[in-house]
């Protein structure tokens, strides 16, 4: 019995939950400085409209 868990499939889920978190951490750190993109006018226009729309709803 591994970690007191009876079934290998449950143990696998326990370990994979932790390993997938590790994957997220490692991937994020490796790519920390990658993927920077310049902000285009369409991005800003989108954000301005989003802001107005949410404020209207409130």
């Amino acid at each position: 019995m591994l970690l007191g868990i009876q079934d290998i499939w449950v143990w696998l889920a326990y370990i994979l939950s932790i390993l997938s978190t590790v994957l997220c951490v490692v991937y994020g750190l490796i790519n920390w400085n990658k993927g920077e993109e310049p902000v285009k006018p369409e991005d800003v226009d989108w954000a301005k409209e989003e802001k107005n729309e949410v404020e209207d709803a409130v």
Partner: peptide, 18 residues
């Protein structure tokens, strides 16, 4: 869509997973 760049998504993966 409210995110600025791919980089911001890459960085958010770290704390998101945890």
């Amino acid at each position: 869509m409210t995110v600025k760049s791919k980089q911001a998504l890459n960085r958010a993966v770290v704390s998101g997973g945890i």
